[in-house]
Design a protein around this nucleic acid. Structure first.
Lengths: 241, 241
DNA sequence: CAGTGGTCTAGACCACGTT
DNA sequence: ACGTGGTCTAGACCACTGT
């Protein structure tokens, strides 16, 4: 095996730079500037930028406008248990300072997909919440939550902004978490999501869609989340219980 | 909200092209060539290529060397249940033709991370399997599996190549799946993984790490998988059982 | 063969951060 | 003021796909 293709110039350059990074430099070190690489390797600056772009998307380097190119710090990823239902409690258990920003509170006529997920009739209203979850000030995930408006008619923006959702379910609506279905996929972050999560457009992210059921097997919540994949790992256990 | 920044030229161009794609074209349609865009929008070809690159990583278009740029087909993603333990059985249940290619069979002295995951002493050997999973001929995931060599000493390459691993566990070693821990994260695919999965380097992918336990709570398997995120969605259920 | 995307060059100016 | 990465240009050649 190990068939080596005749690579393009920038791919060769990226390989060379990768070697330099791994053998001579440490995380956080500043490396050669683009113009220094141009001079040293006798290639055009566009070629250098192609090589550096590849190294950046693969997570080897980080480029900062006006400062330079740096060997990437490998961030410590948080391990989040999938079945855990309270973000706030879980963050506290991990010794992190959780924060939830309520960005939007609206009564909406949801799209067909959302109606289907909530198993609501065509004209039903839903409460839409857009919330940003942070740990130690670092944005972790952006959540779009839809709740059946009829069932949770007393749920005001003020309440949502100051208390955990699952706590409100229990105390104000006598609804307890029974089980949840979650689907997980990976995507490249678009500009809007990337802006909220403070990462470059094109970074890897996780898409989580969760449907939560109460004790009577009614759907009480449908949440679509977009998460920074450099900041957390999702952990799941199968089988034993 | 909706603060609009003064974007770069290529970002503006990308936005214009996106509008054209969404209003005038259908998936699979061929769109303007790079040189046609250059002529029509009065920008340089590099700028056009920057815009198209962005649209490609965000999944709006697909560029094919020698043919042209096409509006992306949104692939039908397979829903894979996380707790299911046999790839082959699950694919059959979904009506897909599964195939597993055994790429590597080796007895190795695994790295520290793998030893730790398998809870083996420092000098222990492991069986290393590299397998590519396909459905209907499309590569889905690349699996790196490590098994404790002592426990599975009779497991030959020939057996592994022709029968499902969990079946061999049951029939030849009297080891049954009890439970598994799995961690899930998203990354951008590096060149090697992307080559096996037949997607462009830099596409989004999922990293799955699974530790499987038998009835006596001994670890019988540690598998690191890299999966194409355009081809499948991982589904998990919490709580009820 | 013509047309397409892929790579590469040499040079220019802009925007940002530090000194 | 200076050096950095970010954007943009105009032009060239290569590699691939179809006719």
């Amino acid at each position: 095996m190990h068939i080596k293709e005749i690579d393009s110039l920038y791919a060769q350059l990226a390989e060379k730079l990768k070697t330099v990074i791994q053998t001579e430099l440490n995380p956080g070190d500043k490396m050669l500037s683009e113009r220094q690489i141009v001079a040293q390797f006798q290639v055009s600056r566009n070629t250098v930028r192609q090589a550096l772009s590849q190294l950046e998307t693969l997570g080897y380097v980080q480029r900062i406008h006006g400062k330079g190119t740096f060997v990437a710090q490998t961030a410590q990823q948080l391990t989040i248990l999938g079945e855990y239902y309270s973000f706030t409690e879980q963050m506290k258990a991990l010794g992190r300072k959780p924060k939830t920003q309520l960005l939007t509170y609206e009564i909406v006529n949801p799209s067909f997909d959302v109606l289907k997920a909530l198993q609501l009739p065509a004209n039903a209203a839903a409460i839409y919440l857009k919330r940003l979850r942070l740990a130690d000030g670092i944005p972790l995930m952006l959540e779009h939550t839809y709740l059946p408006a009829q069932k949770f008619s007393g749920l005001t923006a003020d309440k949502v902004a100051h208390r955990p959702l699952y706590e409100l379910f229990r105390t104000e609506f006598n609804e307890a978490f029974h089980f949840a279905d979650e689907s997980i996929s990976a995507t490249v972050l678009n500009e809007e999501d990337a802006t909220f999560l403070v990462v470059p457009t094109g970074s890897a992210g996780m898409h989580l869609k969760r449907t939560t059921y109460d004790q009577k097997n009614n759907i009480i919540e449908y949440t679509i989340s977009v998460a920074r994949s450099d900041q957390f790992i999702y952990k799941v256990r199968y089988g034993k219980r």
